[in-house]
Design a binder for these strands. Structure first.
Lengths: 198, 198
DNA sequence: GTCATCATGTAAGCCGTTACATGATTGC
DNA sequence: GCAATCATGTAACGGCTTACATGATGAC
């Protein structure tokens, strides 16, 4: 079973709050970065797939968690005001708001637990891992650590075997990559440690 | 003009030495990492495209720079020996060895100079940037730096605006990402500095 | 009233992976 | 001889991006 990035991202975001497609797109961009964020052309069909599969369902527009800009002051009041105005003044009828179903929650847990993770899925899984069992979470972190250790040693091996033929730019690139990987491993070690003590 | 990753990688590698497809694939894997390394299904057609476009040409098999394992000692002799043995003993006739043409070199310079670079093309451009003018190289580094600075501020902005709604995992992820980006910027600063002093 | 943004969707086309097909060479 | 690796290709399939199409809302 291959983990679909879009599916994982949508289910993870809907697990936190109900959202409509357009808003979903913005959140997707926030957590996945400007690059690798999905386009409408794949988001809407993905939502339709998930809906027909029973993982998400359309809900009442009034249930939406609205987007309120971070004005800083009176956040609560501003939010309430905007939520109210939207319901009355703004056409929510043309927005299709989705919520996750029980089946969707089960699917999300399954996706996070799936052992095949890579550069794209790992950050998403980690971002949503509060929705899974502690041991699944620990497994995720440890698997990722093992991958990075492997990557680090492969990188170093490559560097040693080409040593004298490396120009300064390639060398700098490879060294920087190794250092980054080392720091990623140290970061994971901290997370794993925290996970174990709680 | 969109920069094709495969095209850039092939031309960059062939600029250093003549290679056949299979070997090219291995080198590609070394510089691009196991992930994002191209498959045969896209490598061979790409070579054909480049050949019909006149950027690369098939050369005599005897001209091949052979792959010699890094035994460490007597590298030169080992290389000569293997090159000789291959020509005689090994069926080089079924290997199609490619070399870069003058047109290909021009194209490579053009690709590296192209201002549209991203996560995928930047490492490749840097790896091959010794083949371009110093000012082009400096531009590449500075453009990349500007991108990372933008990314860093966007990340921080996102973090601040969601501050209280972040669970520990998302927070850790975002903080780690910011730190990584900061280090990448510092690394680029060192490269830029070196570039200016030489 | 007009422009930017919000909001949802469809369709075509590109590009890359996967799978398939073939055969030589080398080590055991 | 047999398996693993080397070596080169083709074809189908799938998924994602781009572009297109449409319309409401809000700010100035």
């Amino acid at each position: 079973m291959l983990v679909d990035v879009i599916e994982l991202a949508i289910l993870g975001l809907l697990r936190e709050s109900e959202l409509h497609g357009y808003e979903l797109k913005k959140r997707l961009r926030e957590i996945m970065g400007p690059l690798s964020s999905v386009s409408f052309g794949s988001l809407y069909p993905a939502l339709q797939r998930l809906e027909s599969g029973g993982q998400v369902k359309a809900v009442e527009a009034a249930d939406v968690a609205p987007t309120f800009p971070s004005t800083g002051s009176f956040a609560g009041e501003a939010a309430a005001f905007r939520a109210a105005t939207r319901r009355v003044m703004r056409g929510t009828r043309n927005r299709k708001v989705y919520g996750i179903t029980e089946q969707g929650e089960a699917r999300l847990a399954e996706l996070i637990a799936d052992p095949s993770d890579d550069e794209r899925t790992f950050p998403l899984k980690l971002a949503f891992c509060r929705w899974c069992e502690p041991e699944v979470r620990l497994g995720l972190l440890q698997r990722r650590r093992a991958q990075l250790v492997e990557r680090l040693s492969e990188g170093r091996r490559n560097m040693r075997s080409r040593e004298e033929r490396l120009d300064r730019y390639v060398r700098s690139l490879m060294e920087h990559d190794s250092e980054s990987t080392e720091r990623d491993i140290a970061w994971l070690d901290r997370l794993i440690e925290e996970e174990k003590t709680s």
